[in-house]
Design a protein around this nucleic acid. Structure first.
Length: 293
DNA sequence: CAACAACTATCAGCGACAAA
DNA sequence: TTTGTCGCTGATAGTTGTTG
């Protein structure tokens, strides 16, 4: 499935989430109200390059997590009563929750699932922080630099008027322009990384904890994360990772990179941080992404 | 000139894939 | 295999254009 352009089509993730919804409905005899969405998504994936392989991958991954989902829900039903409704949260509640699928119990409490389906290995992005969250949590405002990046690119292209989107496409289609834009953008990646690195270490311990708790979405007792890839199924409850009293949280740049760093919790490397443009270096907004180590 | 449409920019979710 | 780098998608908020 080597097709960079459509590598992580959203439809695949949505399709996977709906398979899980459907399965839960089937298990507990609840109405599945997303049949049409599921059919649409299936068709959408099929017309992509290697569409059949894409569907097959999702179906195979799905089979692997079925018993786990059942195990969790059987336990939760013991606590919260039977499942009466299944809600496809999808991307409707960005920031508020990372849940993709909610099972509602008869007592109105929910059991929530954040689900990641990965073709090969890895655990996926834990969080992708846009400018808003970078400013919120780290107090770093990078808008001036971002404007400057674009102004330089515009000067190079000798086009001060065209919409960014148009210029972006133009640059993407031309290797020479793209090379220039990438070089231009890289400087800012490094600068933002440095700013965020220092900002993080300057935060009070409490604010560091707030930030990391946001990263893991670990304030929700009802949430489970399920990651499935080619080698295994990883399940955890984010709330179990909630940071309480700790001695030290520190960002360290012990790696080779100048666009990332690691965050150590009590001396243990726990998170990797990446500072990048979100849609291509030098031609899009900056962000930070956080991964498990 | 308000109301609606169309277009633009940003954000954050998704996770692929290359390098080490 | 593990670690590091980074792009695509679609929702939404914001902006500009159009029309009755």
């Amino acid at each position: 499935m080597k097709n960079r352009k459509v590598k992580s089509n959203r439809a695949q993730a949505d399709y996977f989430e709906l398979l899980v919804c459907q399965y839960i409905c089937h298990l507990y005899n609840v109405t599945f109200s997303y049949s049409k969405d599921l059919a649409k998504l299936s068709n959408k994936i099929l017309i992509l390059p290697d569409g059949k392989a894409r569907l097959k991958l999702q179906n195979n991954n799905f089979i692997k997590i079925q018993p786990k989902i059942k195990e969790i829900l059987d336990y939760e039903i013991g606590q919260k009563g039977k499942v009466v409704r299944v809600i496809w949260v999808g991307r409707n509640l960005l920031i508020e929750t990372t849940s993709d699928v909610d099972a509602e119990h008869i007592n109105k409490q929910r059991t929530r699932f954040s689900i990641k389906s990965i073709a090969n290995t890895g655990t996926g992005t834990l969080k992708n922080l846009g400018a808003r969250q970078i400013k919120n949590f780290l107090g770093v405002d990078f808008s001036k630099q971002y404007e400057e990046m674009w102004l330089k690119l515009r000067n190079y292209l000798n086009d001060l008027g065209a919409p960014q989107e148009k210029l972006k496409k133009k640059v993407q289609r031309n290797q020479k322009l793209l090379k220039w834009a990438t070089e231009n953008g890289r400087k800012y990646q490094i600068e933002l990384n440095e700013l965020c690195f220092n900002a993080f270490n300057s935060l009070s311990t409490k604010k560091k904890i707030d930030f990391l708790n946001f990263i893991t979405d670990c304030n929700d007792d009802n949430l489970y994360v399920i990651i499935v890839n080619s080698v295994d199924v990883i399940i955890y409850k984010p709330i179990e990772k909630k940071l309480k009293i700790i001695k030290s949280i520190e960002a360290k740049k012990d790696k080779l990179t100048d666009v990332g760093y690691a965050i150590y919790i009590d001396g243990k490397p726990t998170y990797r941080v990446q500072t990048n443009n979100t849609n291509g270096i030098g031609i899009s907004a900056y962000c930070q992404r956080i991964f498990w180590i």
